[in-house]
Every structure is written in C-alpha cells, then in structure tokens.
Nucleic acid binder design. Structure first.
Lengths: 351, 351
DNA sequence: TTTAACTGATTAAACGTTTAAGCAATAAGT
DNA sequence: ACTTATTGCTTAAACGTTTAATCAGTTAAA
C-alpha cells in the first residue's frame, strides 16, 4: 500500500492513503487482478474457488476497496449516468420532476447529471454536448423551441433520449407528456360551466408547441360552447418579464372595474405572478374573478382560497421517462413511442 | 393513467455508428494520436507545426470529433465533476441553491451530480460513496445529523468538500453558512419591538445544529427583552408529518381564541404548512397574529399579506461554495475555513 | 495408459486518452 | 567541420478496469 505524506489541514491525521485499486486487492489476496474482478463482479459464468472468493472479499474489505467507475465505464462503455435537461431546475415543476427522476434512476443503479438551459437554444445544445462528452447512457430532455435539427443529430449519434413535458411535432422520438389541448379544454369548460364566460387566457410569447396547444384547447372550448373569442383576452407575456407584463395586463383587465370574470394561467410561474398581482389589487377571488392555473405549486394552497389547477402526473412522467429510456438503452431497436398521460383538474375554491 | 400509445415503424438506431476517437482523427490527418492530442488541447509547451495543426483541426472538424471525457478523466485523474448533496432537491431552498451552484460550476468548466438524501444517514452515505466512486473532484454537502464520523473518513480519503447550510461543530471542515443564532435573534427582536411578546416558535424535532441554533437565538432574544420563555410555545414537529403536526398545534394555540400573538417558523416548509393552516382557520394576519418565516419562497408573496421572512444570501452561498471548493482542489494544502454570510430580515406586512 | 474434459487460475489486450521520452532532421554555435 | 540545440513528430507507457484466450492441473472416459 502506497502511502504519501501530505501537509493536510484536515483533522488530526495527515497520512493520506492513495486510492486502493484492484491491483492492491490482488496483491493482498495473492491472486491475479482478473480473479479479483471476477469475484467482485460475482460472475457466475467464470470459475472461481470458494477459497479465492473468500481471500478476495477479505482483502477488498480490509483495504476498503471501491471500484473506480471511471475506469469501469471506459472499458464497458456504460456509465450508468443519465443527463436530465430542463429549462430551470429552480422551477418547482422541474425540481419536483427531477427528484422523481433521480429516485427512479437510482432505483436502477443510475446517477443523474442535471442541466438548466433557460429556454436558450445555445445553452441547450452546449449542455447536451457536455452530457454526450461525458458518455451518458441516455438523456431525458425538456426540449427548447426549434431544437428539432439538433436532436436529429443526436439521434444519428445513437444516443437514446426521451422527451418530457414538451414535444416536437416534426421529430420522431420517444415522448412522454400530457394532452395539453384536451386538459385545457376541460379546464376552460369547467370555468364556463361555473358561468364564467369572460375568460382571459394568460400565456407566453412562445414557439413551444405544448404551450400553443394549451391556447388551442382554450379556444376550442370557447367555440364548443359558443363563447366568442376576444383577442384582448389572449394575453401573451414575455418570459423574461413575467411580473412586469402580468402586472400591466391584469391591471388593465381588472381595474377600475373588471372586464373579465376569470383568469386561466397556462403555467405555474404565470399563475404565481398573477396571484401576487391579485393580492396587491385586492381583487376578490372567487367572487369577482375566477382563477384556474396550470401545474401544482405550494403557493396555490397559501392563497386566500385554494387555487383550482391542472395537475400533471409528475410521478408517472418521471418513472415512465426512466423506464422507457432504460428500455431504449438495453435494446436500441426499441420503437419510438409517444406516451400520453392523464392530467387532472383539481377544483379548489378559486373558480 | 396510461392513455394512448402510438408506435412508430422504425426503431431508434438501425445503423449503429461507432463513435469517432482520437485514433480516427489521427488516421484521417495522417499524424500520430499524440499530435492530435497536443493540437486539440492546444498545448503551447509542445512543438507542432502550423501545417499539422491545420491538418488535425480539419480532420477533427470533418469527423465531428468529440473527446471522450471518461478516457480523459481516467488518464488525468480529474473529472471536472462536483457532487452536490442536499436533503431534497424538490425543496425550493435547495433547488434555488442548486441552480446557482450549477451555474457557478459550469462557469469554471465543471458539471454537477445532484443527490437527495431525505435527511437519512444511510442514503447520505450511499450517495457520497457513489459520488466518490465516480471520482468527483469535490463535494458540496448539506450534511445530515450525526455525519461527523463519516465525513472524517471522507477527509482521510483526501476528497475535498465544503459544507453548506448546516455545519458540524465537532468537525474541522470548510463551511459556508449564515449565523443562525444571530439572525433568529434579530427576527425575534423585530417581533418583540412590534409589541408581540407571546411568540410561538415552530421548529423540528432534530439534531441539526443550525436548527438548534435558531431556537437558541429565539430564546436569547426573549431573555434579552425579559420576555418569559414558555415551553408550550416551543413547538417541535416531526419532519415526516409536518402538515399533521402543524395543523394540530396551531389549532391548539389559535382556537377558539389565540393564546399567542405571533408565529415564527424556522423553515420554509414549516411556514408554508403554517400559512395553509392560517388560511384554513381564517386567522387574521397581521391583526390577530404576526408571522415571521425563514427562507424565501414564492408562497410568501401570494399569502394575503406579504410574509416577513429571513432571507439567506443564496447566491453568495452557492458562489462561495464553488469558489472555495475549486481552491481546495487546486491546492490541497488550503486551510479549512468557516465563512459566515449575512442573512437579512425582509419585513413584509405579516408582522 | 492415453486422451479428453473439466477446473481454477493467469496473461495480456483493450477501452480512449495524456504525456514523458526518444528520434530524426535541421539550425546554430564554436 | 564537429558538436550542440532546436524543431517537429512518434513511440510507448500509463490510468484502472473487463474479459477473451490460455495454461497447468486434476479428473473422467476410453
């Protein structure tokens, strides 16, 4: 065992033991490194005596040997690492999802690398490249707008990935998500049935299809119920200035007297910004204005009345993502698959 | 839950293209692999002709060569990867911090692996072991209770780490955090000065020193202002049953008539649970009860009045963690250091 | 008794890099 | 003209694993 003395500032013991490798274990056990490898990976297909097994295990234990996964990965061409790419890990939607995916990945022996790209195409591509350079076994991606070409290149490099949250119409790829059009339709219908017909729909200026779908679902519901669609009630805000835009628009719609009777927020961040403004303006919910929001964040429960919202099946999305990715890795011939999960309308007291 | 499956005709990769390696580039450029390595790492210390440089760069470009970081890591013994270990990445406190750390790490060319341990010692040790097996260059850790011994072992293995959020009194280690005692003192004093003297302090049943410090700060402030300390106002909840315990205790303290005039929540999760209960019970804030909370989450802004809270300097914590870790990696002789950053009291309208 | 089969181990090549050392060829110094 | 430097490149050894191939014994079969 090689020991080297360093001037450690850590604690009392300044003798640092060089990392023990398979070679050290072999020497200690008095066998070849191959034998050590066979034993420690307990490969039933190889022939090793009970005696050797014992010697190796003892040596490994005594030396506190831990296999170097980097070396293992280089040889086996598997890193047991997934890359998770989201818009922003600080957004509760993604951090909750990340947690679920982390657990599901750990469950099958894999580790997660996480990256946030802020909906920026360049950061998006950079991060995916970084993940690939690190030889991740697969990727779980919430794709940004206009990433079809780039993702096609990744497909050609035979790196398996699954798309979550968003999808790309032009891309044949395994995708997991909800039916945004349908659930927004359902939500809108709920408002209409509660006799709210002057609904403002708050969304982003965006190219992301799943968000455009929500708008479509909203319009479809109005049409289906013969409620006229007014452009002045289709609010689109700049994602980089949510608070400012929401503030301005809500003030316009709600003061001095509301010209609408409901607000439908198409994302959690929009909703939180909107709720803040509603509190500030002192608008009575649900008396004056009904509120329906997307996703599920703790703020909805702290608002003066529990906020009605559309809840995505985060757990299923995360587990499906990992499961399907694993399948693609194990069998590269796996067919592409689009999985649509059911989102649910949670009716609080705000609508 | 599973709604509909659409199968595509073709699998992901019918033709598997082998990854291009440095060898391929060398062959294409008509030079040795050493030359390729020297060029691509543009090492000024080595001698290479302009001609070779051009040939190599062209070849690399044409083949779309990307160096295999796993192989590089094995050789250089550096992975440019940090492990971040938190209690729960889905907790906004940690996810915001993770985002900041991710960015700071990327800024110096490093990638993050994130793990959540749920305050569980076994998961904690497992995850750190996993990180070490993957040869991370360093760790950023929010340590769980009673992890001193384990962390000492890690120190002996010469894996640099910095502690965030929490600290371990018995451990000599680089630590970044706030002065919990002091800022809780300040917060309590703020309540007292606003003539609230019957304060309930909501905390966890815990061994975590930083949380115990908050309780100490609270008591110190009461003493300093000659307010009697009542045990019935020191509420300790089970972290696994926050909603249940908060509900029960607040009901007891607040109904039918409040026996207290303020609530001080010692964490964001406790506060959110508490706010929910306050809404449910219809308690008037700040008229009947003052509220002060720890940390900063969006829910505080959506409550009927903006919640006064103690804001930690997340950005500084994250940046310091990465900066100091980098220093420790570059120079293993770096002395350990305890950094205390300033938390601020944000006065809303709830207190 | 000879050969074949089996058993339990070892040797060595490979994974894709980096980098010290070596080797020609040319330039410079005396 | 002869040594010495310098330049530009290559060779080959490592990093810590896995694993195919091989080898020496032993046992079973002929």
């Amino acid at each position: 065992m090689l020991k080297r003395l360093i001037f450690s500032t850590f604690g009392a013991n300044n003798v640092v033991v060089k990392k023990v490798s398979i070679k050290d274990v072999a020497k200690k056990a008095g066998v070849s490194i191959a034998s050590v490898s066979y034993v420690l990976n307990n490969r039933k297909d190889s022939r090793i005596s009970e005696d050797t097994i014992k010697k190796v295990k003892n040596a490994a234990q005594e030396l506190n040997y831990r296999p170097n996964k980097i070396a293992k990965s280089l040889k086996t061409q598997r890193t047991f690492t997934f890359g998770l790419l989201v818009a922003d890990i600080a957004n509760p939607y993604f951090s909750q999802l990340a947690r679920i995916i982390e657990d599901a990945a750990k469950h099958i022996g894999c580790t997660l690398i996480i990256g946030s790209c802020d909906e920026d195409k360049e950061k998006f591509e950079d991060l995916i490249n970084t993940f690939c350079d690190r030889q991740v076994d697969g990727l779980i991606i919430a794709p940004v707008a206009n990433s079809a070409n780039f993702l096609e290149r990744i497909q050609k490099q035979a790196i398996p990935f699954v798309l979550i949250d968003r999808y790309i119409p032009s891309l044949r790829a395994t995708t997991i998500g909800i039916d945004n059009t349908e659930v927004t339709f359902k939500g809108t219908e709920h408002l209409i049935k509660n006799n709210r017909k002057k609904i403002a729909f708050i969304s982003y200026i965006t190219d992301l299809q799943h968000l455009l779908d929500r708008e479509i679902g909203f319009k479809n519901a109005l049409k289906a119920h013969k409620v006229p669609i007014k452009n002045s009630r289709l609010i689109k805000v700049d994602k980089d200035f949510i608070d400012r835009d929401i503030d301005k628009n809500l003030k316009q719609l709600l003061t001095p007297n509301p010209v609408i009777d409901a607000l439908f927020f198409s994302s959690n961040k929009l909703a939180v910004a909107g709720l803040k403004t509603l509190v500030k303006l002192g608008i009575e919910v649900p008396e004056k204005i009904g509120v329906l929001a997307f996703d599920e964040v703790e703020a909805y429960k702290v608002f003066k009345v529990p906020v009605s919202h559309i809840k995505q099946p985060l757990y299923e999305i995360g587990v499906q993502a990992v499961t399907q990715l694993e399948k693609m890795i194990k069998d590269p011939q796996t067919k592409f698959q689009k999985t649509t999960l059911e989102a649910s309308l949670i009716v609080g007291a705000s609508s």
